[in-house]
Each structure stands twice: as structure tokens, then as C-alpha cells.
Write a protein that binds this DNA or RNA. Sequence first.
DNA 1: AGGGAATTGTCACTCAGTGCCAATCGTTGG
DNA 2: CCAACGATTGGCACTGAGTGACAATTCCCT
Lengths: 197, 197
Amino acid sequence: MGERENKKQRTRRDLADAAVGLFTEHGYDQVTMADVAALAGVSRRTAFRYFPSKEDLVMDYPIAWLQVFEESIEANQGRPLSVRIRTAGHAVAAFIQSDPVAVKQLSALAFAHPALAAKYVSSTRRWAQRLTVEIERDLDGGPEAAAHAQMLAAAVMGIIDSVCEIWATTDQPMEPLLDQGLDLLAAPLSAAAGGHS
Amino acid sequence: MGERENKKQRTRRDLADAAVGLFTEHGYDQVTMADVAALAGVSRRTAFRYFPSKEDLVMDYPIAWLQVFEESIEANQGRPLSVRIRTAGHAVAAFIQSDPVAVKQLSALAFAHPALAAKYVSSTRRWAQRLTVEIERDLDGGPEAAAHAQMLAAAVMGIIDSVCEIWATTDQPMEPLLDQGLDLLAAPLSAAAGGHS
DNA sequence: AGGGAATTGTCACTCAGTGCCAATCGTTGG
DNA sequence: CCAACGATTGGCACTGAGTGACAATTCCCT
């Protein structure tokens, strides 16, 4: 918490801001890592120390949402799974709307470029695995429970991804979308998961 | 038909085979495009002309499955959507099992490496869009039908992806997995889609 | 056989990403 | 306040993916 930590956080934000600005103005492919570093006032090498890849420059917020999602899932251990997932979704929506920066612009950027979309989607795979073990626990381990849980988790993440995408690229509010999406999986979610009392 | 087309197909296969062999033996990151090209007996530049990126060396078969899926969807225009999707899934399973090469080894490779998994998943996004318009047509255009269709398509693709992944990384047969997975979405699929008579 | 088009190889380049080392800056103890 | 220490930074050089341009080669057609 000294000057050092302070400066690091500032540099990180400078880089991310410079990236979003340059990317939206000139396009992701036309901007080099050196450009971003220069605008942020650091060397190319340092930029790579803060963000291991060019794509990561834009992934801070999406990653943060997923973290909120996971924390909310874990915070409500006792409840039925369907409720926990829905609650977590709304926590993410609240988190996003409380955010001062131009998250939407950033998200639209991420979903527009194939490389960024791929990076984002692949980062959701980790959370899908996390969701899988959660669902599996609620399933009380039948024989093919593992596969069942994995597929259900993939479906949930698919819906969450597309909710984010629709929200980022249109003007629809997030909460109704989320409810509508999760309703699609209401039956399998509540069927197998009544809380593990 | 001529010698030219013949040779091109052979070169393409040589490159893909060389890639799978080298990747499984030494690991994706340890093998360079030059290595693959050398083993296939062509220049580095030519290798890039056949496969626009290193990842694509391994994507021919996954892409082919998705194509089979789409063709089956289109071939059964009259039927209810849920039936069409299920039928298409089984068409893919049949296609895979009729395949002489070590598809499974290749698939396991693709799902193991983050870059390859990302590439594959992002390629499924195009088919999800295709599925979306199909679902949307069956929905008879309600007000928020577009979003509904997009989310449902994402869920279907999520399930298909994870079916492929489970199949590639375990010993479970594909068809039961697919049926089990699509059952999760039985309600929303059949509810809104009774064929458009 | 020979002209023409497609394919291939070579060269040179940009840029992402990384290891290494010296310089610099913030921190901490005197 | 100063010196020593450790963390951060910048510069340099390198590997490897991907691309454009052009000359050489190969196949096709007449």
C-alpha cells in the first residue's frame, strides 16, 4: 500500500484505458502493443509485464464479472442451485451497472473481434468447470452425473455468455434477459437440485 | 479432377497429418510451423497458404462435424426443431464413427490446449448464429424472440461442445451423451417449436 | 511443344511475446 | 538524511506467427 502499489494500479489502469481508446478509434488490429505502451507512458516491455498478452488488455472487466458470479455462487451455499445461479446473475448485473467506466463500449469491442471473443469465451471455460463441480455436488453423484453436470454447466455458461453479448451489442437491459435465459434451464436445474439438505 | 487438385488435397492431408503427429509427440508449443512444413515436404510459406494459422492445422475435422450438423438441420426443414437438432446430432455421431483417422486423438489435443480450445469454440459461434435464425423462424417472431433464440442456440451449442469434449477426453460413447444433453433443453425446444405448419 | 495460369519457394518484413541484464526507483534500517 | 536492499523498469536481442511481393516452377490446355 505504499507508493509502489499505488503506482502499479495506476499504470495498469493507464494501459487498459489507452488500449480501449486506441482500439475503439483505430481498430484492434491496427494498434500495436507499442502504441498502447507509448500512450500509457511506459515501455513496451513493461506493458507486457502488466498484461501477458494484447488480448488481456481488454479482459479485466469481463474477468471481474465472472469473479463476482463465482463469489455469489459460493456465498449462498445453502440455497437451491437454481436460486444461487439466478442470484449470482443478478449480482453481476448490479456490479456492471454500478460501474463508472464505459464497460459497454469495452464489451462490444470484445465481442466484435474474433480473437477477443475467443479469449473471453475460453476464460469462461474455467468458470464452467467451477460450476460443474457445484452442480455435481447437488446431484448426489449418480452414475453419469459427471457428464450431466458438465453439460448443464456448459448450457448455463452459454446462456450467460449470450446474455452478455446481447446486452453489449443492443440496448436491452440485462436482468430480464438473464431471467428469460435461465428459465430455459429451469426444469433440469430445479429437478436435480433442491438444495442438499 | 486434374493432377493439380489431386496434389493439393494430398498436401493438405500431409500437413494435417504431420501436425497431429508432431503435436501429440512433442506438444503444440514445442512444434513450429516450419517443423510441420518440413515433415510434410513443403515450404513454410506454402503451409501457411493451406492453413491460415497454426491452429487451423487441427481444425479440419471439428469444422467438418459442424458442417454435417448444419446440413442435417437444413435437410429436415419440415420437422419440429427439437427433432431436427437431435437428428443432426446423431448424424454427426455417425459421421465421426465412420471416420478412419484418429479423430479422437486429434480432438483430445484440441481440447487440451487453451489456444486450440478457444479457436474451436469460437468457430462454433458461427454455427450458433446459424442455429439462431433457425430457431427464430420456428418461434414466429414474438417481441423478444431474437434474444430468446440467441440464448437457446447458445445453450444448444454449449451442450454440443461439451458432448464433444467429454467424448474426446473419456471413453463414453457419443449418442447417449447427446440425448442426455439435449433432454436438458427438451422443454424450451419443444414448447416453442412444433414445426411451422 | 508451347503459351498461360496456378502453385510454390525465397526473401524480407511486422508484430506478439520472452529472457537477460543494467539502470532506476521506492522502501527500510541506521 | 543517507546508504543499502529489493522491486520495478527499460533496452536489447531473440524466436516464432503471419503476410506481401516476386521469381521460379509446375500443370493444364490447345
